[in-house]
Write a protein that binds this DNA or RNA. Structure first.
Length: 568
RNA sequence: AGGGAUGUAGCCAAGUGGUUUAAGGCAUCGGCCUUUGGAGCCGACAUUCGCAGGUUCGAAUCCUGCCAUCCCUGCCA
């Protein structure tokens, strides 16, 4: 077996099924999947997992993947969502060619299938009300009661179903039900409704129909019509599989295989359309594309790349075990990607003025800075340097603890790509005692950041020239929830009780000049701080707003923490 | 009279009776290196696979029983 073939083996149970099917030629060598969203909301990272799975499998095995909208409920669905979903799947980097379908495209065919079921004596028109259907369904432990309309003649059913279609009955007056088994331990098999009356305008078929097929009936037949081989869905549909199979078997049509996997859960966030909608409606976030939202649009605005999301989907794996993936894995994926690609820049978020006493008052030097140490092909840039600078307040301490190797009285540090400086004096506000500026001297021999005598400095810090930098709005985002699993609520609470009140902090930073021209969606690493993306909503030409995608890993904060803990 | 699933480290997840003395990733902890305390590199991290029995020369993998968790009583998908 070659390395390549080994690589193809397993990795997850769905691949295993496909590899086996290919071996046995079950589908004539074909692999054909589909991503079937209902256009009733925006896509989130959980959908991304499914998208990557379905499109990825097709790609890997030389097959195809359709985009199909499961639009059988006109009162919930909308074209706005269709367009948003198309845009999001494209942005993730997937292509469905000319195979964008709508379940509503199949309404005529589906109607014919229903008629066939009636003719076979496998479906009937039921006059029971919603409440009566519920009451006769039985419970988890008791069988249901057969509908009094269950044994209508084929002719009567045909006529009634036709009249339902024509709009002769009001909403909810009648349903078409599959005649299966009211005593089945699987509730889905207790004569499920397959058509209901809804006098509603559909976003695609308009007012052509007033009866709409249910999911179970529609989905399997849509898969069949599109000649899907592997119909991949989430675990909660496992109980529906017997019904999926039943319709296809009764009708004797092409029969794909339904395979279920566990949906994604991510720590410190929620991934249900209902809860996400609630965050939007209550104004807790700034809309579906708020950078804190786990939606595709939110992640995009936050600065996540399609590649990082696809890589995430790949490394978390696919299984049938319900689990919560640590959001640190997602954060790792974006750091890993941006580390190799993002242009570096100097931005000071909490400025402290530094004056270099022995530096000429009016001199300005252009320092050469590497744009990306991980990719030298990205070149260098010039950063202006002068007598007065800003550094990060955290990078100076009057009484530093051990292991602190940044600036402190009498200490020498390197200003990255510039000079070594030594702190000579600290100026404080006489009222508050707050440090307002720090005086230093520089060593002219260390230009560029290295010394001819080879002496070492422990710390390297970033800086901006006070005269040349410009103020920028920087939005520091953090996790939306303070609880690892916000779905796990204590008595009397809701997931909203675990919102992180500090998930957004807006600051004004001082940025080096070239950042002024940054365009929406451009991503940067602010050295020693984190990765940032130009906001696509609030930025204006010449006035970029930066969203923090994720911080850089911060070893010092860990040392600090353990230092504090050992002091306690 | 319930049915359907799942249990491998803090979190994901390979493994499908014998080179497994249980891959890989995240996290964590050491060390090296470093003009980002970033990145990179090296190392540590399950005598054990929900539990208890059994089969076998040999079991995470097969059998039996038990336990835990999740899903199912929409004319939602």
């Amino acid at each position: 077996m070659s390395e390549e073939e080994k690589e193809r083996i397993a990795r997850n149970f769905i691949r295993q099924i496909i590899i086996e099917d290919l071996k046995t030629n079950k589908w004539g060598g074909r692999v054909h999947t589909r991503f079937p969203p209902e256009p009733n909301g925006y896509l989130h990272i959980g959908h991304a997992k499914s998208i990557c799975l379905n499109f990825g499998l097709a790609e890997e095995f030389g097959g195809l993947c359709n985009l199909r909208f499961d639009d059988t409920n006109p009162t919930k669905e909308d074209e706005e969502y269709v367009n948003a979903i198309i845009e999001d799947v494209r942005w993730l980097g997937f292509d469905w060619g000319d195979r964008m379908y709508f379940a509503s495209d199949y309404f005529d065919q589906l109607y014919e299938y229903a008629v066939r079921l009636i003719k076979m004596g496998k479906a009937y028109v039921c006059d029971l009300s919603q409440e009566e259907i519920r009451q006769t369904r039985g419970t988890l432990t008791e069988p249901g009661i057969e509908s009094p309309y269950r044994n209508r003649s084929v002719e009567e059913n045909l006529e009634l179903f036709e009249r339902m279609r024509k709009g002769e009955f009001p909403d909810f007056a009648k349903t078409l039900r599959a005649k299966i088994d009211m005593a089945s331990p699987n509730l889905n098999m207790r004569d499920p409704v397959i058509y209901r009356i809804k006098h509603a305008t559909h976003h695609r078929t308009g007012d052509k129909w007033c009866i709409y097929p249910m999911y179970d009936f529609t989905h399997c037949l849509s898969d069949s019509i599109e000649r899907i081989t592997h119909s991949i869905c989430t675990l909660e549909f496992e109980d529906h599989r017997p019904l999926y199979d039943w319709f296809l078997d009764q009708l004797g049509v092409y029969h794909p295989q339904q395979i279920e996997f566990a949906r994604l859960n991510l720590s410190y966030t929620v991934l249900s359309k209902r809860k996400l909608l609630e965050l939007v409606q209550r104004g807790i976030v700034d809309g579906w594309d708020d950078p804190r939202m786990p939606t595709i649009r939110g992640l995009r605005r936050r600065g996540y790349t399609p590649e990082s999301i696809r890589n995430f989907a790949e490394i978390i794996g696919v299984s049938k075990k319900e689990s919560i993936v640590d959001i640190a894995v997602l954060e790792h994926c974006i750091r890993d990607d941006l580390n190799k690609r993002a242009q570096r820049a100097f931005v000071v978020l909490n400025p402290l003025k530094v004056i270099i006493d022995n530096y000429p008052d009016d001199l300005v030097e252009e320092m050469d800075a590497i744009n990306n140490p991980e990719d030298l092909s990205m070149g260098t840039r010039k950063v202006p340097f002068s007598k007065e600078l800003y550094i990060e307040r955290d990078d100076f301490m009057e009484n530093p603890p051990k292991k602190y190797y940044r600036l402190a009285p009498g200490r020498e540090v390197r200003l990255r790509y510039a000079y070594y400086i030594t702190c000579t004096d600290v100026v404080k506000d006489p009222q508050t005692g707050e440090i307002v500026e720090v005086h230093c001297t520089y060593d002219p021999a260390t230009r560029g950041g290295s010394s001819p005598d080879g002496r070492k400095v422990l710390g390297t810090i970033h800086w901006v020239s006070a005269r040349h930098c410009f103020p920028v709005e920087v939005r520091l985002y953090d996790r939306l929830f303070i609880k690892e699993n916000p779905n796990d609520v204590e008595e009397g609470k809701t997931f909203l009780d675990y919102i992180n009140p500090n998930s957004l902090e807006i600051k004004t930073g001082y940025a080096e000049p070239f950042l002024k021209d940054a365009k929406p969606e451009e991503r940067f690493q602010f050295e020693r701080i984190g990765y940032f993306c130009v906001d696509s909503k609030y930025s204006k030409p010449g006035k970029p707003v930066f969203n923090r995608t994720v911080t850089l890993k911060d070893t010092w904060s860990k040392i600090l923490k353990s230092l504090q803990e050992s002091n306690e």
